[in-house]
């Protein structure tokens, strides 16, 4: 398989990946007033808005967990996914002068945006810790599963971002499709509502969305102290892995044509 050789080349360029990710972070915060505050503001503002709507206007059952922390626990990883995709998909086209002038494994660009979004995610994680202290949510031993959930999510993010980035090189329409797609995906995932609202006979289909199993998993291990639904998580892992393999091989197959098309 060529994939091993591709990964080896990528490994040789790991330094570029870090430097480029650092560039992404620096550039994003350098000339903005709030700087790293933006990393917190986006999920926090959404949490506030959803909390107002879904506690006062249309109450949503959250099984003893206060709605703000219920929503934030899902909005934080969701924002990680969404900003990786929305910055990562155009990363090739936005750096066309680099792609057409110098050779390096092109996946460095989308990967670096994912890494940079990861920095935002970590900053936003501090707020989650604060909220857990405020609402006196204990740290359950199930939280040990957090790295596994994150790993699956990153594999998923990698796959979807590469598919989108490749498609954007060929069809500029994709740029306008991304926000719409993310919005639909948000409502198809248990971000603002619990999975318990989905009728049982639809759950099998529902969990084909890997974010469903993942977001439910984050809540289970952090807020409720349960182990996540094993079948839902396995489905998420399989779908994420399949998307990553498809995305990476598609990306690498078409990579030689990027410089000619961009």
């Amino acid at each position: 398989m060529d994939v091993l050789a591709d990964i080896k080349t990528l490994w040789l360029h790991r330094e570029l990946l870090w430097v480029w990710a650092a560039r992404e972070v620096r550039v994003r915060y350098k000339q903005s007033l709030l700087g790293a505050g933006w990393a917190i503001l986006q999920p926090l503002a959404l949490t506030l808005m959803f909390s107002l709507v879904f506690t006062l206007v249309v109450p949503i059952p959250t099984a003893d967990v206060p709605y703000p922390i219920f929503a934030y626990t899902a909005l934080l990883p969701w924002t990680f996914l969404a900003s990786s995709i929305s910055f990562g998909v155009p990363s090739l086209v936005n750096n066309m002068n680099l792609v057409t002038k110098i050779y390096f494994p092109r996946e460095v660009l989308p990967l670096a945006t994912i890494a940079a979004a990861g920095v935002d995610f970590l900053v936003g994680g501090l707020v989650l810790v604060g909220m857990m202290l405020w609402y006196r949510v204990p740290l359950y031993p199930t939280a040990l599963l957090l790295p596994v959930l994150l790993l699956i999510q990153m594999i998923l993010t990698f796959g979807v971002t590469l598919i989108g980035a490749t498609a954007l090189v060929f069809y500029r329409d994709v740029r306008f499709l991304v926000p719409l797609f993310l919005q639909l995906w948000l409502y198809a995932s248990p971000v603002i509502y619990p999975v318990s609202l989905i009728p049982a006979q639809w759950r099998g289909l529902y969990f084909l969305n890997p974010m469903a199993g993942l977001l439910e998993g984050y809540r289970a291990v952090l807020l409720y102290g349960h182990w996540p639904d094993r079948q839902a998580l396995a489905t998420a892992a399989v779908v994420a892995l399949a998307l990553a393999v498809v995305g990476y091989s598609w990306f690498k197959r078409l990579e030689p044509r990027f410089a000619d098309l961009i």
Binding site: H13, E15, L16, V19, W20, R23, R26, V27, K30, Q31, N97, L98, K101, I102, F104
Partner: peptide, 22 residues
């Protein structure tokens, strides 16, 4: 080609060097 206008010369040297494989 890899310079970013908002970054300093120093930051860009490291960035460009990394692009060129250093």
């Amino acid at each position: 080609a890899g310079f970013h206008p908002d970054l300093t010369g120093r930051e860009n040297v490291y960035l460009n060097g990394a692009i060129l494989g250093l």
